[in-house]
Computed example of a mutant assay.
Amino acid sequence: MLMFLAGVIDQMDLSLEHIKKGGVHDARFGLMLTDNAVELVLHQIAKDQQARLKTYQHIADTYEHKKELEEAMGRSFEAKLKFARIEAQMTEEQARTITTMHTFRNELYHLGLQHEPILPSLALFYFATACDFIGGFKILGFSYSWNIVLPERAQKYFTRDGRFSPAEPDDFPNACRKLEEACQHKKSVTIASLADHMDSVISDSDTCLDVLAHLIYDNQRRTRDEAIIDCQTWRLAFETEGTDFAKKGGWRGGTFFDLVEWLKRNYPLQFKKDPIPSWKKQALRMRSNWNPHVALANYQSFMTVTGPMREALLEGATQVEAEIDRLVDERRGN
């Protein structure tokens, strides 16, 4: 068990070293190390309970969560989180934040640039949250061999009494507290970083909507509300989702433009009017939040819910600007 605990502290110490450098790439690496340490502890919680049930049959006979334990012993991160909550080794708030950060970690690994502008702040926040969770890990038996050699990074966190013991049981939670103090995470900075990124994302969408609203049809300029509806329905008309909905909804056929108009009248669009003012209010409310866990949950919800609309706005504005460039080149004789 001591080598396991020392290995976790070793990873967390390396993670902090990179996060404190402040760069995006170091933050990415630090976040991944933090997430790996969290997953190691989550799996150990399940392993410890499995060992306990095998040792004490009378406890195993009445244990109510054998199915959840079996799932936690597998590869599912979500199952491990759920079991840690069952064993009262994690709060609901910690579970929600860790779930979000694990998702970010996977996106960083596969997509690279996702959430890059706020990576340093996110990595620091995740580190502080992980220290809090890991420090509460219930150690089931503090065992070690006499010739044990602790990892070099971990040695500075473990107490030697000068005789036999290479460490004491309290060293692990104390190490987590020291690491959390050393990271110097500030809640206000995390919240401001999330709100700043929301503002930036909203500003980009606002610009895209302006580009689409300035298009002229039938000698009339569209309103922003009309542009939002057109942006959604034109995209739907090109997709199977839109055509299937139309067929099931009784559309009797016609031109592509007829389909677009039918979708405007009948499809339950996500946004019926310009959403930018509402989005700006959400970002403003986030700045007045005092809890970074709540702020992160709100940020993640916003990014998920608005994602398809923001993508459609960007795609539409890009097409418009490409067409404008084409017309300009055509008039220049290029």
Results as ranks from 00 to 15, higher is better:
residue 1 M to E: 12
residue 1 M to H: 13
residue 5 L to A: 03
residue 8 V to L: 07
residue 23 G to L: 06
residue 28 R to F: 12
residue 36 N to M: 13
residue 39 E to V: 08
residue 43 H to A: 08
residue 46 A to D: 09
residue 48 D to L: 01
residue 59 I to E: 12
residue 60 A to L: 01
residue 62 T to K: 08
residue 63 Y to W: 14
residue 66 K to I: 11
residue 69 L to H: 09
residue 71 E to W: 07
residue 71 E to V: 04
residue 73 M to W: 01
residue 73 M to L: 15
residue 75 R to H: 14
residue 78 E to L: 09
residue 80 K to G: 06
residue 80 K to M: 05
residue 81 L to S: 03
residue 85 R to Y: 10
residue 88 A to N: 15
residue 93 E to R: 13
residue 98 I to G: 04
residue 101 M to D: 07
residue 102 H to I: 00
residue 104 F to E: 05
residue 105 R to I: 04
residue 106 N to T: 04
residue 113 L to S: 11
residue 115 H to N: 14
residue 116 E to D: 13
residue 119 L to C: 11
residue 122 L to K: 07
residue 124 L to C: 13
residue 135 G to Q: 06
residue 141 G to M: 07
residue 146 W to N: 06
residue 149 V to N: 08
residue 154 A to N: 07
residue 155 Q to E: 15
residue 161 D to W: 09
residue 163 R to N: 04
residue 164 F to S: 02
residue 168 E to N: 03
residue 170 D to C: 00
residue 174 N to A: 04
residue 174 N to S: 12
residue 176 C to M: 14
residue 181 E to W: 08
residue 184 Q to H: 10
residue 184 Q to W: 05
residue 184 Q to I: 00
residue 185 H to Y: 11
residue 187 K to S: 15
residue 189 V to C: 07
residue 190 T to M: 12
residue 191 I to M: 05
residue 191 I to P: 04
residue 192 A to P: 08
residue 194 L to S: 09
residue 198 M to H: 09
residue 198 M to F: 10
residue 201 V to I: 12
residue 204 D to C: 00
residue 210 D to R: 12
residue 210 D to L: 11
residue 212 L to T: 03
residue 214 H to K: 12
residue 218 D to A: 11
residue 219 N to E: 14
residue 221 R to H: 12
residue 222 R to K: 11
residue 223 T to A: 07
residue 223 T to L: 06
residue 226 E to N: 03
residue 231 C to A: 10
residue 231 C to H: 01
residue 232 Q to E: 07
residue 233 T to D: 01
residue 234 W to V: 00
residue 236 L to Y: 05
residue 236 L to W: 03
residue 237 A to S: 15
residue 242 G to R: 01
residue 243 T to Q: 11
residue 244 D to M: 06
residue 248 K to V: 09
residue 257 F to A: 01
residue 257 F to P: 00
residue 258 D to K: 03
residue 259 L to N: 00
residue 261 E to N: 11
residue 263 L to Q: 02
residue 265 R to Y: 03
residue 274 D to L: 04
residue 274 D to N: 15
residue 274 D to Q: 07
residue 275 P to W: 03
residue 275 P to K: 02
residue 276 I to K: 03
residue 277 P to K: 01
residue 282 Q to I: 15
residue 283 A to M: 05
residue 286 M to S: 08
residue 287 R to M: 07
residue 288 S to G: 02
residue 296 L to G: 06
residue 297 A to P: 04
residue 298 N to G: 02
residue 299 Y to G: 02
residue 300 Q to I: 03
residue 300 Q to W: 13
residue 305 V to H: 15
residue 307 G to P: 02
residue 311 E to V: 04
residue 314 L to E: 13
residue 317 A to C: 06
residue 320 V to R: 02
residue 321 E to I: 08
residue 321 E to W: 03
residue 327 L to T: 02
residue 328 V to S: 02
residue 328 V to L: 10
residue 334 N to D: 10
